[in-house]
Design a protein around this nucleic acid. Sequence first.
DNA 1: TATGAATGAGTTTTCATTCAT
DNA 2: AATGAATGAAAACTCATTCAT
Lengths: 217, 217, 217, 217
Amino acid sequence: MEHESRPIRTRANDDVDKAARREDILEAARSLFLQDSRQLPSVARIAEKARLAKGTVYTYFTTKEEIFAALLADSLDAVLALLAQGLGGAQPSLDTLIEAFVSYIEAHPEVSRLDAMAYQLERNLSPEAMHTHKLRATMGLVAGGGLLEAALGLPAGRGVKVLSRIYALTRGLWQWLDYPPEMREVLSEPVFAPIRPDFREELVEALNEYVRGATAP
Amino acid sequence: MEHESRPIRTRANDDVDKAARREDILEAARSLFLQDSRQLPSVARIAEKARLAKGTVYTYFTTKEEIFAALLADSLDAVLALLAQGLGGAQPSLDTLIEAFVSYIEAHPEVSRLDAMAYQLERNLSPEAMHTHKLRATMGLVAGGGLLEAALGLPAGRGVKVLSRIYALTRGLWQWLDYPPEMREVLSEPVFAPIRPDFREELVEALNEYVRGATAP
Amino acid sequence: MEHESRPIRTRANDDVDKAARREDILEAARSLFLQDSRQLPSVARIAEKARLAKGTVYTYFTTKEEIFAALLADSLDAVLALLAQGLGGAQPSLDTLIEAFVSYIEAHPEVSRLDAMAYQLERNLSPEAMHTHKLRATMGLVAGGGLLEAALGLPAGRGVKVLSRIYALTRGLWQWLDYPPEMREVLSEPVFAPIRPDFREELVEALNEYVRGATAP
Amino acid sequence: MEHESRPIRTRANDDVDKAARREDILEAARSLFLQDSRQLPSVARIAEKARLAKGTVYTYFTTKEEIFAALLADSLDAVLALLAQGLGGAQPSLDTLIEAFVSYIEAHPEVSRLDAMAYQLERNLSPEAMHTHKLRATMGLVAGGGLLEAALGLPAGRGVKVLSRIYALTRGLWQWLDYPPEMREVLSEPVFAPIRPDFREELVEALNEYVRGATAP
DNA sequence: TATGAATGAGTTTTCATTCAT
DNA sequence: AATGAATGAAAACTCATTCAT
């Protein structure tokens, strides 16, 4: 008995459309999270931003957490792709590699911020989703480790270790130095200088120190 | 608006009792958080665990966040005390230091887990509380840095840097390797071996690598 | 965070149904307030009375205060409609007008009671809501004033004045004479006769006195 | 077993001291209410302002509401005293009386504001307190009515009526025109001029109109 | 008398998720 | 597939009042 037809966004019937819509949701989630990384945006806001109804989001993801798990996985893929590309060249210098990595991290704060939420995030994933998610991550890490071993001439197994530790160091430093806007104001006083170094410099230095130690004879 | 009074636990009238009660609340919060570190326990649960009425918690802390900020501050103090103690001896070997640190971290998971929440936590602190909190942390870090410089013969300013990076590496590794119970089950499959090393070994190795790199000539 | 769904009352999908549901909420609020006018009923009670979930109320009103602001606005509209109707006739006698007004007030105690809360009510309205609310009221008053001027042959501007004062007198008398049930019992003693006259008579007399004074040459 | 003696405010042992302390509480309540008249201040704030402990307040008043009932009664006394004084002179002109009354009201906003809360206030009074309270008010009103009759040569019984209506008109106008600060800003737009006249002028005019009508032959 | 710690019912509001349409 | 109304379980926090000290 409806008399007015409510505007419905074009129906996604084929796989291409569906993938595009899924991407819309992810993009909306990503951008909202970037705006305020202290909590996951609500489904309502994601839907609004993606210009979809709340319910529609649930036809693409079974859980809010899954959205962010997907985002996380994408991030990891991107980082590993970067690594693959960096290592692809003839004889990459360590400095170049670190430089490329740091630039990437700096340009993609959502990667690190999402990462800081991972613990909380993985919580409501169904066991299956969790399995898929972790499997994908593990495969990626192992692949990346292999590349690293090849490039730096590391013994088997070391690649994964070193990669994990680089990752851990980066994650830790990011969390240590990424202050939300309100905090920046408070921290502008000179007393706080020791905890307010430049992130890029800090990361470059720390990584250099670590890698030197890790690859020393 | 009638209230019948139920039996009261005991009345904290002097400062000693009050401090004890405050500690009860902190302890309740700590233990609940340890049970499920994916989110801060609710005030209701903290009160219940501390065997107090919800309202009572608010006579000791003005905000839920303050409880956890206090916990965080306590953790930091403890770690720094450990450092001071470790560095106090005549000529501490690096291995001994790392060993003591790692043991502490392993024995006090709430420290690292709390830390993983710090970002989210500090958010609702009032600017004043935030200031106090960060000031305390900064002072502690600077003091620790000084001790480290003295012990390892580092140039001025290096202590804080090295300490921060040790901290970052630890934080990152912890978050990487501390899986919630449900996840542990999923990860028991052999495929996941690369992301499931022993935390202690991993941390010892990583710290050794880093420190070696950081203190190399 | 699992939710089991309980049976839903019905689903208001078109605008008509939605308006009806909105009206249900308003009606629930109105009737609860009428039962105890000393405070605004809680959203929980309103929802219960309207046989809706608490959350549902918030899909129709963004704030508790808005519910009552809407009620207030409706009351004003009704009174003004009454006035318009009363003044619409050929040559309305003052007595008839006052009679109609008083009957209305007597039959709609919630109007006066709500009014007594207006001060407190308007407080938490957002500035925008407040603006809208007050604008609507002002427009209504001005329109009513115009009608009154036409009907009674008053000079321009007098209508609004006289109407406001009639309103003020009514409001004041109402608050003076509308006793809550518990109080009525106490006031049944003869000593209290002076403060317990019949509201209707009192209002009629007072309005007559005022209007006579206001329209005297 | 207390070792430190907590600072206790001088003990009020005789009636004079007790009355003074009672007055402190009333004064604190009055001033807080004046600062924000949209709700009764909390007992905690009253106690703080009076430099007393919360519990102490309850040794002087059995209920929060009683504090304000007392304030209300005091206000009434003051207004009636003013009336008595104004009517005491030889042959007071009506204009002078109204002038004095209006000045008083304008200088004592808490009287009108408290009044606007009366309904809500009287709620939790015990039946006895309510009785006392209302009796006092009735007696005052009757006395004032007598004075008015004598001064204006009104027939018996008219004094109370006229006085009540003057009161009602004043109350109504006050509530109509006393805007909280936030609202004043919103109402500064020209559209709102009709509902933003000067309170004093408005009250003087309205009272004159009413009294003229009430005393006309 | 004075104190203030303790109480706990009660408040408003949010939000992930479901499901009739 | 898409919609968005409906749900109701949380959550944080307030505050009048009591009562052991």
